[in-house]
Design a protein around this nucleic acid. Structure first.
Lengths: 343, 343
DNA sequence: TTGTAGGCGTTATCAT
DNA sequence: ATGATAACGCCTACAA
């Protein structure tokens, strides 16, 4: 039913090797037969079978992208970067959403390997470095996003979380805050822990004592930011500023503050992380640490495809992108007002 | 290098047919050899090759999902619905983002067919119904999202755009507005045209004359909403309310209104469409027409997988989901205030 | 320039 | 219960 190169060969009166060559635009075919065959192929509605091709060429021109939460606007931007760079190079991408579930993450990775993707881009949330190390020892090239391993060398594209967080907190300190809380996400995920580092660093440098009770964990969902903020505001001595590990959390934090009848930033200043598109909206106006999301995805894909094409290299690529503090109204810093927010 | 069933067969001293049977848990294998083979497979780090399997079984357990804009929070929700339903049924999904580009859409569809996906879910933006009709006549099952064709019968999951838009506009009318503008997206895309229908219907029913100058088109991006709103506000007789074809546009509209020094909803009321998560935020508080996004994706996947498994059916599935008007502050209707917004 | 034939890793259909 | 062996659709030496 579906037409194959054999069908074309029969109709054209040539061997199917010739058809294969003609269709792949190989030089060793006469211009005349090439044209004839391509005409026939089009006419017969031939569509190459990438599965069959993949079996023999041992490449699928397919990448796997594993992310934890497509619902968080950070990841679609990254995914777009990956996809456009991939597509430009002739690759498709399997998009897998793990919902922050490490088991699902693992299942997906194994599945992608069974599907013989040519490479893998992971925004991993697993704590099991042993698993990742083992994975990296396999033959499928991998690029990690926002994840740096201690034990193993690997390709990664990341942001300088420590510096970003430090800048955010120092900004708050420079505005006079000394009682600053940190609302993290999942406790053991790098974006929580590294940003905590930066937070502590900023405090230390400015001789502000670190207080355990001002640090909270949860998920990376808005609800978690909301609840942790409520709890922080109920402290005998509540914080005057809150730094959230990402913008979604920050939005939850702001909601909690407002529901308590308090104002942002007059009563409580807020800073987030990521600079998702909605942070810039006049109604939100969130001071935040911007990540070059699209670029991160784009670079990850390019590095991956490069490794796929050139084969494994002893030196892995390490990209650490600089964060950018974007000051808007929510922190009370006035460098950028609503009128200047990009739209 | 990579271990195949032949390697296992050699080591186990059986034919590779037996290995295949054992690994697939076929009944015609003795319990003993099955166990032994599975042990060996695990020990040798065997990983089935889905490409090879796909070549012979003629199914890839893979779906293609084509959407125009992963950056619009509407689509990640849909994608999550598709992905979870697919994953539960053992399918993976290729996520393709067309950036509202019809050529890219077409290229992706062809590519997905070459990759032999078992089925296709399309949120298509092409005006070329002929192409879609031809596509639907091929053997790959297809489900359309928010797209209904005149000429051809096909599976689809959609929302009642006309009714949704009508409700939105009637809500504005009931609040006393009579000069209501419509900010559409791409002019020929169904979500623009159908919602325009609903808009006109509501006007007609209420004996409000339709005025061409109050209808604008552009893209589905925030910038487009922003610019069209600016232009509308510059009319000699500007509208007192604006209905936008989606929430992203509505956010742009709100920004324009505020930058003009006007207030929402006191000076200009705004209603959107989709109910993206950010619409519910206290700071935005957008009245909008909610679509069951996750459900739409989920149903599309289930319908598709059903057709894949049962083979083509003469009766296609038509699902039209009901829209829900969610009244928040931006329209000036007071049914739901910020305090009640979900978080 | 073109044809022949082997093989990619599986599953499936015969026998045995 | 197990073993040969032929597909699946394509690419690619090697031969002609």
């Amino acid at each position: 039913m579906t037409v194959t190169i054999k069908d074309i060969a029969r109709k054209a009166g040539v061997s199917y090797a010739t058809v294969s060559r003609a269709l792949n635009n190989r030089p060793e075919v006469s211009e005349k037969t090439r044209r004839e065959i391509q005409r026939l192929a089009a006419e017969m509605g031939y569509k190459p079978n990438a599965i069959a091709r993949g079996l023999v060429t041992r490449e699928t021109l397919t990448l796997g992208l594993v992310i934890p939460d497509i619902t968080n606007p950070f990841f679609p931007e990254v995914a777009r970067g990956v996809e456009e760079a991939a597509s430009e190079a002739g690759y498709s991408v399997f998009l897998c959403n793990t919902n922050w579930d490490v088991d699902k993450e693992r299942t997906y990775i194994e599945l992608l390997e069974e599907k013989r993707v040519d490479g893998l881009i992971l925004a991993s949330v697993t704590e099991d470095e042993g698993y990742l190390a083992e994975l990296l020892s396999r033959k499928t090239p991998v690029v990690l996003i926002n994840r740096i391993l201690d034990q193993v060398d690997t390709n990664y594209v990341a942001i300088d979380n420590v510096k970003g967080a430090q800048q955010a907190v120092e900004h708050l300190i420079s505005l006079g805050h000394r009682r600053i809380a940190y609302v993290g996400g999942l406790e053991h995920v790098e974006s929580t822990t590294e940003r905590l580092h930066g937070y502590r660093l900023a405090l230390a440098i400015n001789n502000i004592p670190f207080e355990e009770e001002l640090v909270r964990y949860g998920s990376f969902k808005k609800e978690s930011g909301y609840e942790n903020a409520l709890s922080l505001l109920s402290l005998p001595e509540p914080p005057t500023a809150i730094f959230a590990a990402n913008d979604i959390l920050a939005l939850g934090v702001i909601q909690a503050i407002k529901e308590r009848g308090l104002k942002v930033p007059e009563n409580v200043a807020v800073v987030g992380f990521d600079d998702i598109p909605f942070a810039a909206y006049a109604e939100v106006n969130l001071t935040t640490v911007a990540q070059p999301k699209y670029t991160m995805g784009e670079m990850a894909a390019k590095i991956l495809i490069d490794e796929i094409r050139k084969g494994p290299s002893p030196e892995k690529k390490h990209i650490v992108l600089p964060p950018t503090l974007v000051i808007r109204a929510s922190s009370g810093g006035r460098r950028e007002g609503p009128k200047n927010s990009k739209h």
